[in-house]
């Protein structure tokens, strides 16, 4: 295999097949066609929009597969509760008895470790900044490195950080499983929807330039706006799928306890 790589064109070779036909066009025409300074984004989301669309579908399918393989609705019968003021641990074997968790009691499990005040506080302060940065990465995908995929992953990792620094129940309580599923499907739907709207407007699938009558503002910017729309869709899907995969892996599908 290493011997075979010797036949590849050199890195950055101007006479390689890819550089002689395609790259020239992208480098010369991107600004003129799409008004997007970041050529990589315009290639990924516009010129090769189909590729990214099915990539998003692959991500969605990965989340769906994790959900279908791992999700376990039976729940655990044994529960452990800790009485906060005294530190007494209650072990309830009857699955139906559920104590109210709040000021007096807190959930715990066999791998329970006391949550550290420093870690909790630092993560609580950090998470909003991570999420705002994720939105910045999505919104600036047209101008700087980044885009829906990276922004979605960063947003999803902020949710995972919440689960790690507090516990999994905090995350599941904040964002319901159904909401995550809806976000994952909605992301793919936004992408396909924007692409499909172009067809009744008289263009091909994914031909954003035909959306000009629907969008206020300069008609030259419509392709950039179309790209922003699909990037937001990708961001939604990736964010939800990352959280779904993490929650299902770490709790063996029971959504109750974990890292």
């Amino acid at each position: 295999m290493l011997y075979g790589t010797a036949d590849f064109p050199d890195w950055g070779d101007p006479s390689s097949p890819a550089s002689t036909h395609l790259s020239d066009y992208y480098i010369e025409k991107t600004i003129e066609d799409t008004q997007v300074p970041n050529i990589v984004t315009s290639v990924l989301a516009d010129y090769r929009g189909f590729d990214t669309m099915f990539e998003t579908a692959v991500i969605f399918t990965a989340g769906l597969a994790c959900f279908l393989l791992l999700r376990d609705f039976r729940g655990k019968k044994e529960r452990f509760y800790r009485h906060k003021p005294t530190g007494v641990i209650l072990h309830i074997k009857d699955g139906k008895k559920i104590l109210a968790v709040g000021k007096e009691f807190e959930h715990m499990d066999k791998d329970w470790v006391p949550s550290d005040l420093i870690i909790k506080t630092v993560c609580r302060i950090l998470i909003p900044f991570i999420q705002i940065y994720a939105m910045y990465v999505v919104a600036h995908g047209d101008f700087s490195p980044g885009g829906g995929f990276q922004g979605g992953v960063i947003f999803g990792s902020s949710l995972i950080l919440l689960a790690i620094s507090y516990d999994l129940k905090t995350l599941v309580k904040r964002i319901k499983e159904k909401v995550l599923g809806i976000f994952a499907a909605l992301g793919v739907l936004i992408y396909v929807g924007i692409a499909a709207i172009c067809m009744p407007m008289g263009g091909n699938f994914l031909d954003y330039s035909k959306l000009a009558p629907l969008v206020p503002g300069d008609p030259h910017h419509v392709r950039a706006l179309g790209m922003l729309g699909v990037e937001i869709g990708v961001g939604f899907a990736v964010m939800a799928v990352m959280a779904i995969i993490y929650i299902n892996i770490v709790s063996e599908g029971r959504h109750d306890e974990g890292l």
Binding site: P145, G146, Q150, V153, S157, Y246
Partner: peptide, 16 residues
Amino acid sequence: DVAFTEASVGAGVSTV
């Protein structure tokens, strides 16, 4: 762009 993806996906989320 690829470096950004590798940092967020490869080094970040997949390790978790």
